[in-house]
Simulated assay, not measured.
Amino acid sequence: MASWNSIPLEITYQVLGWIAFASWTIAGYPQVILNFRRKSVVGWNFDFVVLNITKQSFYLIYNATLYFSSAVQKQYFDKYGHGEMIPVAANDVAFSTHIVLLNLFGLFQIATYERGGQSVSKITLGIVSVVYLTAGVCFFIALPTHSWLWMISVFNSIQVFLASIKYTPQVFMNFKRKSTDGFSIGNILLDFSGGIANCAQMTVQSLDQNSWKNFYGNTGKILLALVK
């Protein structure tokens, strides 16, 4: 695995990564705080919640596997070159872990607070079912040859797809109700800031290594930053 050529760029990379982590992490709290204060989840679309926790779970699997598994890292280097760095940083794993736990707490709030008759739509249940079925098929395809990099790359693509559609039910619900009551919009700017920091982090790594392979080696991360 390659090492950093410039200490200032390495420091910049770490700083930008943790800025993205902080922005995206803090962005998740206004909603759970709002739910707690109101003792209600009315106005928080459950389809969004289900799509989001599914998306974040797949992102966690991708990040943690590529960051911790030496076998998957070897497959990455065999594909993209042994002079490359893996395109996942500690802040990516930390964010994914934290946001999954925060989403689980959100599910707990849904189970305990006033729901106002809201439920998960059949469309969302269908989408999630197809997603998990696809993941299961990919696992059994990858199992004989241990093609784990391919499998988690598919998972990464799945989470980008879910990220691109997850807000749609919430937007439609807000439009139908002509209100955003119950939905915290304070996370939008933080999401945007995190996306910029994330893109900048990957750019810094590419500049240091004089290679842009980390972008197409982790297209999910850059696409996530753009659609977040």
Rank of each mutant, 00 (worst) to 15 (best):
G136N: 04
G116F: 08
Q209K: 15
R38A: 12
Y76I: 09
Q75L: 05
S70N: 04
Q14G: 10
W44F: 15
T54G: 07
K74W: 11
Y76L: 07
L223H: 06
K39R: 15
A22R: 09
P144S: 06
T54M: 07
M85Y: 11
V131Q: 05
I33P: 07
R177K: 12
K79D: 11
A163Q: 11
W18T: 11
G182N: 09
L66K: 01
T145D: 13
F215I: 06
W4C: 02
D181S: 13
D47R: 10
M85I: 10
D92N: 08
G106K: 10
G81E: 02
V41C: 04
S184W: 08
R38C: 03
S153D: 12
G81L: 01
L107G: 02
D78W: 11
G217N: 05
L16F: 08
Q73Y: 09
F46N: 14
N214Q: 14
V128N: 05
L133K: 06
L34T: 12
F36W: 13
V50N: 09
R38M: 04
V15E: 01
S57G: 06
V160N: 02
A135H: 07
F183R: 11
P8A: 06
F172Q: 14
F183E: 11
F161V: 03
L66Q: 04
A22P: 05
G186D: 10
T97N: 13
K221D: 09
N35V: 04
K176M: 10
C199V: 13
N45P: 07
V42D: 03
E10V: 07
F175E: 15
K79S: 13
Q75W: 03
T124I: 10
I61L: 04
C138I: 10
I188S: 14
P30I: 02
W148F: 02
R38N: 12
G220A: 03
S57N: 00
E10L: 11
A200K: 03
Y67G: 00
N187C: 10
V50I: 15
Y13I: 02
S179P: 09
F192M: 09
A2I: 01
L133N: 09
D47E: 08
I123R: 13
E84W: 05
S6Y: 02
D208E: 07
S153Q: 13
N214E: 13
L133S: 15
I53Y: 07
L125P: 00
L60M: 15
G17Y: 01
S121G: 15
T203L: 15
V93F: 04
I33G: 07
I11S: 01
D181A: 14
V49W: 13
S57W: 02
G186W: 15
L102W: 08
R37F: 03
R115Q: 14
A111T: 12
